[in-house]
Amino acid sequence: MKEKNLFTLNIKMLIKIFGIFVALIVLLLMAQRLLMPKYTGKMAEGALTGEYYESKKNHDVIFFGDSEVYYNFSPEVLNEEYGINAYIRGNANQTMWQSYYLLMDTLRYETPKAVVVSVASLMKEEVEGEAYNRMMLDTMEWSEYKYSCIKESMTEEENVISYVFPIFRYHSRWNELSKDDFKYFFGEPNVSKDGYLARKEVVPLTRLPAVKPLSDYELSQKALEYLDKIKEICEEKDIKLVLVKSPSQYPYWYEEWDAAVVDYASKNEILYVNLLEAVDEIGLDFSVDTFDGGKHLNMDGATKNTKYFGELLQKELE
């Protein structure tokens, strides 16, 4: 009888202890939600990866790249003008391997007819910094591709655990919480339209920064390796691959880089469109079509750019 009582007590005790730890985990998850940065209004780029999962997965074309993609191409215009259902999976300073893992992540949900990859990151051997990793990876859904992308992107000071439990990264925000952190606790409104970030402002291009000669014009071997992987998976899934260089006026796109991409595209029979060479044909006027002095296009510029590129894309899809 005594044994039985003791046993009952222990089971009760273990249930209570279990309950305490469940409560702890719930509280930590709530704290994590509260402490993670909210991207509505400021640093909208941080929300881009996550918004894809809310979209209908029936896209004809998916763009991959950095800000030269998500500011300069409008899926809405592509749809209205050419009936192409597109989505942009872009992030600030997105590297080629990040584009690859986002493509693999996308293929878990859908197989588009074409994939457009921005070549602007082909010279990047490393990520720009931890902040960019977090913006790109925090809202990516968990899969083997997210894990691989984290491993490939992490800076020396980062660790995987902080991606599994972002509270270990953002816990120190407790003394900088703002109204938005509470307001958007249960969710944030979308900041993009199918991955496109629209900017209305006009900040004209007045003077281009001086072009500095480089000691080495080689493209990054790592980026090329991942471009090869993108090419291979596209071939395997019968997806058309298109390489594109946006008409952004700077950072400067060197002729040597362009020649290397042209060479790569012709060797692999891939369409490469350098929109920098078609600025006049597109009708871009950098005194009115840019919101940051020539680096990225505003809504008017993006509309013109997309209309031009859409025509080429439609032909490629036919």
Partner: peptide
């Protein structure tokens, strides 16, 4: 009691995770 001890442990873990000085940039 053991339960009180575990409640204390949980509170301290929570406080350490949130208010602890650790992680990137530190």
């Amino acid at each position: 009691g053991i339960i009180a001890s575990y409640a204390m442990i949980a509170i301290m873990i929570f406080a350490t995770v949130i208010f602890g000085m650790y992680g990137i940039g530190y």
